[in-house]
Each structure stands twice: as structure tokens, then as C-alpha cells.
Design a protein around this nucleic acid. Structure first.
Lengths: 233, 233
DNA sequence: ACCTGAACACCGTTCAAGT
DNA sequence: ACCTGAACACCGTTCAAGT
């Protein structure tokens, strides 16, 4: 007879990950998770103190799945970029998870693997040990912010997205050329935040890594021989 | 006699901004806004089709307040930085607003003023006209992502923040040195995402602007005379 | 010892019925 | 023409009562 069995924490996490992956549009809730497991939401509160704690645990699984099959390749920038793109892909279409992760990075094996790889890449880059924690911190913030905000965009309904697009068009095309000359001039080419996110992600991250490389060269004197770059450039 | 008056859209927006500003911890809701106005939530749906539409309108007011009193000063990088810091400050402690704004930039006068200033600064930087829309797009994404994710951190309860801190400590300090050598090595210095956000914001933005400057120099040949920088550095 | 039902205190949104 | 009450379909979380 179907009902009444005990669910392990593992099984609950699996079911939560599954539910988050399949239910694209509508939002995740403890009650829906309980329903999917054929139990009552109150039962889940024996395994988790709060919804946030549950989501944090699932976020680490996503991270784990993201690094699964990853092997370092290329130079340190390529390694960080490849890893970041994997994490980004893993969190896409799972807005609530990305938001939680962005708020406060998870803490399990997945998180450790990502941290380890980025730290090693920074060492390979030749960044002095004493600067690595700060560099890591900035990279983590940048990547988490971009992924979380991207997930936020895909979290709203298509209608709201279309409304937002329309508002943007009105703001840009309807700008008074007297008061907003530059905006009026670029009106046809300026784009809303929601488009072209993948390219933007890669470019912004690349720019940040190049900046680190330049600084490292400035400090250690071991930059590419052709371009000394001793002013911040 | 107190009850039963008509509220203009303006008054509702003012009250919403006020409520968002004062109610630090607990979350904003249409019902609470209605209660603050002494009316029923259903009345508000004559003025706004949805909560999102309402929040978008308030977000533009915040933007307007952010640029109030702003005057361009210094070089183009300083102008963009000063403006970004103002916007950041305006959205702090208003997580729900920042999230909505991050999802889809607002559309009123506030938004226009910010766009105008950034576009003018990019022109002043000497970025070729045909590149400005793309550069603007990346800058806007970067700033919005950082601000929204920062607001996300301050949105969670202190208890959840402390839990997250504890989880982070466990993840870092408890890492097996065999499996995570770099993480174990930097364990004492690596910091969680939530700390030092202001410095991180300034540094990440500065790095991005420096990158634009370097590229502009590479393309136009009008960089600082001492450092040609024709490779991406 | 474990789980459940029912409740508490909320949400956003709609719409018939009132004034 | 405008507004309201009441309802719909949800939330996260708790806890006494059951098995």
C-alpha cells in the first residue's frame, strides 16, 4: 500500500532537485515538494529547519553536478571561465536556487570543488599567495552576482518580461532629445538587460580575469614580455 | 471622518517607497501597503495591474532620488563610479526593489537620467560610437547584478546569515587537505561572499572600466602615451 | 519514536455585490 | 463610477494529537 514510508534526507534532496528542474515556470514550494513525495509538508521539517536550509543543500548538489566531468584544461583563465560557464549552465532555469546560492554560497563538496579549482587557477596564474584570497573573493562575488541576476530575469513570467521590454522601449525611444541627447542618439541600438546574457557573462568575466593578469604582471614583473603594462591598463 | 478617500497613483507610490524604506526586515506586501493607506488591497489594483508593475514604478523613483543632486565631476570613470555608488546606496536595504530592478530595469525619468549619464561618460572616454551600446549594456548588467545580489544578501534574516557564515566556515575549515590542498592552504584567509561588499563593488567596477579604457586605447590609438597596450591586457 | 491533521498567520489577485 | 468584502488558491511553519 503506497503511503506512509520514511524518506531519507538524500531522497528529499533528489526530489527537490528534480522538482526544481522540471517545474520551469511556477515556483517551488515546500508544500509542492511534499506532495511530490506523497507526504505532508510538516514531515519535511524534521529534516530541515527551514526552506532556506533545504535550498542551500540542493544548491550544493547542483554545484556538484556542475563540476561533474570537469577537467582543468588550458591556461588559468580558460580554467576559471570553463568552470564558471558550467556553474552558470547548472543554475539556469532554477531561479530560486540561484538566488539562494547568490545570497550565501553553499557549503558542501560541490562548493569546495569549485573553490579549490579557482584557487588553484589563481596560483597557476602567478598571483602572489597573499593576494589570492582577495582575488578569489571578487571573482566569486562577480560570478555569483551575474548568475543570480540572470536567473532572476528568467524567473519572471513571459508577460512580465514583455511588459518590461515595452517599458524599456518607451523609456528609450520616447526620450526627449533636448534633455537626453545621448540616449536619443543611441536609442535604436541600446539593448535591455535581459538580452544577450551569455555573451555578456563571458565578456565581463574575461575582462575581470584580464585585469587580474595585468595586475599580477605589474606586481611580479612576470607578464607577457612584449607588453610591460606597469600602469593600470 | 478618516476613511474612504481616493488615493492618487502618486500618493500610492510615495507610500510604497516609504513603507519599503522603513520596514527593514519584514517583507513588503500589497496588503501591508493597503493597510498603511487605510484601504483594502483590492483598491490598489485599479492603479496597478500587478505587484511587479507597482514595484517597477517605485524603482524608478528610487533611481530618481539617487541621481538627485548628482553633478558630473572628474574623468569619465569617476563619473560612472560616482553614479553607480549613488544607485547602489539608494537600493540598499530595499531588497525587493533591487531584485525587481535587477530583473528588468525601470523605465521612467530616473532610468533615463542614469542611462544618459553613462552614455555621455562613454563618449567622453573616447569609445567609438558604434561600440557604445554594447559597452553600455555590459556596464548596466554588471552594476545591476552587483546591486541586486548585494540586496539579496541583506534580505535574509540575521539568523540565516549567521547559519550561512557557519556553513561557510565548516566548508572551508573542514576541507580535507589531501583532496582540497589549495582550499586548506587558504582556509584562514578566504572570506564569505557577504562581507566587504562595498570595496568589492568599487574594485570590480573599476576593473571593468579600466578594461574598457584599455580597449578604447587599443582601437583608437589614443591611450596613455607610455603604455600602448595593443595586446589585451 | 515517528508522523499527521489541523491550524496560524500570512500571500497576490479577482469579482460580484454594494454605495 | 467607484470601492469594498469576501473569496480563491495559495504560502512557510508549528504543534497538539494520534498511531
Amino acid at each position: 500500500m503506497a503511503g506512509r514510508r520514511r524518506w531519507s534526507t538524500e531522497e528529499i534532496l533528489d526530489a527537490a532537485a528534480e522538482l526544481l528542474r522540471t517545474s520551469d515556470t511556477d515556483s517551488f514550494s515546500v508544500r509542492k515538494l511534499a506532495a511530490a513525495l506523497g507526504t505532508d509538508s510538516s514531515s519535511l521539517y524534521r529534516h530541515f529547519r527551514s526552506k532556506t536550509e533545504l535550498l542551500r543543500a540542493v544548491a550544493d548538489r547542483i554545484l556538484l553536478a556542475a563540476v561533474d566531468g570537469y577537467h582543468p584544461e588550458g591556461d588559468w583563465k580558460q580554467r576559471i571561465t570553463a568552470l564558471a560557464l558550467r556553474v552558470r549552465e547548472a543554475f539556469r532555469q532554477q531561479p530560486q536556487l540561484a538566488a539562494v546560492w547568490g545570497r550565501y554560497a553553499s557549503s558542501g563538496t560541490g562548493s569546495r570543488l569549485v573553490m579549490e579549482e579557482v584557487l588553484q587557477a589563481l596560483r597557476a596564474a602567478g598571483v602572489p599567495d597573499e593576494e589570492i584570497p582577495a582575488r578569489y573573493h571578487r571573482i566569486a562575488i562577480l560570478i555569483a552576482a551575474l548568475i543570480a541576476s540572470e536567473a532572476g530575469v528568467s524567473a519572471i513570467t513571459p508577460e512580465e518580461q514583455e511588459q518590461g521590454m515595452e517599458l524599456f522601449r518607451v523609456a528609450v525611444l520616447g526620450a526627449d532629445p533636448e534633455r537626453f541627447p545621448a540616449l536619443a542618439h543611441f536609442a535604436r541600438d541600446v539593448r535591455p538587460l535581459g538580452v544577450d546574457r551569455r555573451a555578456a557573462f563571458e565578456e565581463i568575466l574575461a575582462a575581470h580575469l584580464v585585469h587580474i593578469e595585468a595586475h599580477r604582471a605589474g606586481f611580479s614583473g612576470a607578464g607577457t614580455p612584449s607588453t610591460p603594462c606597469d600602469t593600470p591598463c
